[in-house]
């Protein structure tokens, strides 16, 4: 099948698929960021049970394979009387896994700040909240741009899990298997999806390093 034939027949579906992947990526990423921040605050809190629970959370979702998590959500949860839509299952999986990595990156970002700066801020009479606001947050955010860019790309790659459940509209991976089971789409279908993924990743990467160059902190 040539590109033009493929696009006439499946063009709309491709647009939908690209949109599905982008949307899933964006929503998952934002949720992962939110959860990642909360988990990180718990991990650096002086309250031991919170620290332990948050560390446990990170170890679980950093180390669980996406497929294993998705299967638990789709097939195992109903046995506990928790039935979620396929979309919800995918969204949860593609949020929880990146959220654990998000927390790891945030901790790494914080660790780039010299501990002496905290002592200096303290010696100037800043309270804990003033130190967080003036010294820690601005530096942690600015040194997290590249890791967060990588996280966004990684989140997009994770959303391919959506192809493992029946979703309508399909995502960029799901559509390749769909076309290939309905027609002999051949390599073209694969190449289009691959190019859209890789293109998105390169775009994110470029924007990320552009932003990073603007805000990077000289050390």
């Amino acid at each position: 099948m040539s590109i033009s034939e493929l696009l006439t027949e499946y063009g709309d579906k491709y647009v939908q698929a690209l949109f599905t992947t982008w949307q899933l990526t964006a929503v998952s990423f934002l949720l992962a960021l939110l959860i990642g921040i909360v988990i990180t605050v718990m991990r650096i809190s002086p309250v031991l049970p919170l620290r332990m629970a948050a560390d446990f959370y990170v170890q679980i979702f950093r180390n669980i394979p996406g497929a294993a998590l998705l299967i638990l959500l789709v097939y195992a949860l109903p046995y506990l009387n928790v039935v979620l839509s396929y979309y919800m299952c995918v969204l949860i999986a593609t949020t929880l896994i990146p959220s654990a990595f998000c927390s790891e990156y945030l901790i790494a970002g914080m660790n780039t700040i010299g501990p002496g700066q905290i002592e200096a801020a303290r010696s100037l009479g800043m309270t804990f909240l003033q130190i967080i606001r003036n010294v820690i947050l601005p530096q942690a955010v600015r040194s997290s741009v590249l890791p967060m860019t990588n996280l966004l790309v990684a989140t997009m790659l994770t959303t391919a899990l959506a192809s493992q459940v029946p979703l309508n509209p399909r995502d960029l991976t799901g559509i390749v298997s769909y076309i290939n089971t309905h027609a002999v789409g051949g390599v073209t279908a694969f190449v289009i999806s691959a190019a859209l993924y890789a293109g998105t990743a390169v775009l994110i990467g470029q924007l990320g390093s552009l932003l990073d160059r603007k805000v990077r902190i000289l050390r």
Binding site: T159, Q164, T173, V202
Partner: peptide, 19 residues
């Protein structure tokens, strides 16, 4: 390198499985 880094593993699997 950019190509392989930006494409999900599942898509490559479908390539070898279906194509």
């Amino acid at each position: 390198i950019e190509f392989t880094r930006g494409i999900p593993t599942l898509l490559f699997i479908y390539f070898f499985f279906l194509l």
